[in-house]
Design a protein around this nucleic acid. Structure first.
Lengths: 255, 255
DNA sequence: CGCGAACTGAATGTATACAGCTCTCGCCTT
DNA sequence: AAGGCGAGAGCTGTATACATTCAGTTCGCG
C-alpha cells in the first residue's frame, strides 16, 4: 500500500498498467539500454529497490522475459541477461523469415478478397514514404510504423492464431524484428537503395498474395528477412550503426 | 511449513523437484486428462487446495503453461484452459513441419561428419522396431522413444539454440508433437502402412542431411509432418482413436 | 604460502496476508 | 413476471515474512 497513489499517477504512461507490466517494461528497457550487462545475474531485490515494486510482480516479469528470450534461468536459481552470438542473431532472422514466409503462403492460400484493402493501403503509404521524405525523422518513424503494420497485416491474413503466436515470439527478440535493421540504416550509406529493394519485395509479396501464388509469397518473404540479415551484417562492421540496432548491446562481438 | 516432509516423500517421482515444477506437472496432467474442461477458468485456490501447494508456485506454473499454449489469460484476470479448433491443430502441425524442415535444412548445410553416428544408429533402431515387433506394447513404446530421439537429433544437428527453443515451443502442444499421431495408430487399421511411409521419410531425411541436400531434407521433413496431419484427420473420424491422442479433449468437435 | 573447509551474507523459492475488483445471486421495483 | 440494481462472496494481484540454499570470504592447517 505504500506505493498506491489515488490521484492520477505522475507519469502519464503508467495509465492503467498493472505493476507486472510496469516491471516488465522497466526491466526490458534496462536490458536493451545495456544497463544490465549480458551474462550478469538480475537480482530481484535490486530491481525491486530501483523500481519501488515488490518482488512478486518483478519475478513474474522476469519469467515473461525468459519466454521472450531476453533472459535465461540460472541453474542455481534466479535469472541472468542472455547474450547472443552473431550466429544466433542470423538464425533468429532466418526463423522469422521462415515463419513469415509460412504466413505469407497461408495468406495467399486463404486470402479473402475483402481483406486486401488495408494491405494495399499500407503498401501505398510505404510507397509514398520511401519515394518522398524518408530522410526526415518524421518520415523515418512513419516508415517504421507502416512497415510494422504491413508485416502484421500479412500475418493477420494467414488467419492462424497459432502461427501469429509463434511469430510474435520470434519477433520479440529486438534484433530479429522486421524493423531492427531499419534503425541501423539511418547512418549507413547504402540506406536508400536497400529500402527500395525492401519495398519492392513488399510489393511482390502483396501481388503474390493477391494472385493466390503461395510459393512465391513464401519465397519472397523469406528473402525479405534475409535482406534484414544482410543489412545487419553490414551494421556489425560499422560501430555507429550497431549502436542504433535495438538490443545491439546483447550481441557478443568477441569470439 | 505445513507441507514440508523431512523424510523422502511418498511418491518417488517428486524427487528433487521444486514445487513450481510439481504444480506444473499436476496442472498439465489435469488439463490433458480433461479434468479441467476447455474454456473454464482455473481457480488458483482450488488447485492450491487440491495439491497442497501454495498459490505462488501455482501461479508461476500457470504462467508457464500459458507460454506452452495450454492455457490463456482471461482479460479480467486469471487463467482459463485453452480450446482448439481443428484448424488450429492442423496449423500447429504445419508450423512444426516448417520449423523442423528448417532444422533439417540447417542440419544438412552445417552437418559435421562426426555427429552422424547417433543419427544412423537411431534410424537403424527404428528400422528394427518397425519391421519386427511393433504390435507389442513394448515395441510400441520403443518406437515412440526412438522416434522422439530421431527428431531431437535432427534439431540438434542444426546447431541453433534459437531454433531449438522455437521448436520446443511448437512441440509443446501435445497434439502437435511428433509422437501425437503415433498414439492414435494403435487402434487404426492403416497403422502399419503409415509407419512404413513415415520410416521411409526418416530414411530420406537422414540421407539428405548426409549428402548436404538441404532443400530435399527440408521438403521431406515438411511432408513428414503433414503425414501426421493426415493421420490426425483420420483419427478425428474414429472416436476411439481420438481418445488416445494426447490432449484430444482440448479439440472442439463442434463446428 | 597454498589449499580446503566452515561460516556468513545475500538472494531465491515459498507461504501467507491484504486490498481491490469482478461476477454472481438474490431482492426489489416496475 | 421480468429486468435492473445492490450486496456479498470469491478471486486475483501485490506485498511481505520466512526458510533454505548458494556463493563468496576468511581463517586455519598442512
Amino acid at each position: 500500500m505504500s506505493q498506491v497513489t489515488d490521484f492520477p499517477s505522475d507519469s502519464e504512461t503508467d495509465k492503467g498498467q498493472s505493476r507486472t507490466v510496469k516491471a516488465l517494461l522497466t526491466i526490458r528497457e534496462l536490458i536493451l539500454e545495456g544497463v544490465l550487462s549480458p551474462g550478469k545475474r538480475i537480482s530481484e531485490l535490486s530491481v525491486a529497490e530501483r523500481t519501488g515494486i515488490s518482488r512478486t510482480p518483478i519475478r513474474a516479469a522476469l519469467q515473461r522475459l525468459e519466454e521472450e528470450g531476453l533472459v535465461e534461468t540460472i541453474p542455481s536459481g534466479g535469472f541472468a541477461v542472455k547474450s547472443f552470438s552473431q550466429q544466433d542473431v542470423f538464425d533468429a532472422i532466418e526463423i522469422r523469415g521462415t515463419l513469415e514466409g509460412l504466413a505469407a503462403r497461408l495468406a495467399a492460400e486463404r486470402r479473402s478478397m475483402a481483406r486486401l484493402g488495408p494491405l494495399n493501403a499500407c503498401l501505398q503509404e510505404l510507397d509514398e514514404v520511401v519515394e518522398s521524405a524518408i530522410d526526415t525523422d518524421a518520415g523515418f518513424s512513419r516508415y517504421v510504423t507502416a512497415n510494422a503494420r504491413l508485416h502484421a497485416l500479412i500475418v493477420d491474413l494467414a488467419e492462424s492464431p497459432a502461427l501469429e503466436r509463434q511469430i510474435e515470439r520470434a519477433v520479440s527478440l529486438p534484433f530479429a524484428s522486421p524493423n531492427a535493421f531499419v534503425m541501423a540504416q539511418a547512418v549507413m550509406p547504402e540506406s536508400h537503395r536497400v529500402l527500395l529493394v525492401a519495398q519492392d519485395q513488399h510489393r511482390c509479396v502483396v501481388e503474390a498474395i493477391t494472385n493466390h501464388e503461395g510459393a512465391r509469397a513464401e519465397a519472397v518473404m523469406q528473402e525479405h528477412a534475409r535482406l534484414a540479415g544482410r543489412n545487419l551484417r553490414l551494421a556489425l562492421r560499422h560501430e555507429k550503426a550497431l549502436e542504433r540496432v535495438p538490443g545491439g548491446a546483447l550481441i557478443r562481438n568477441v569470439r
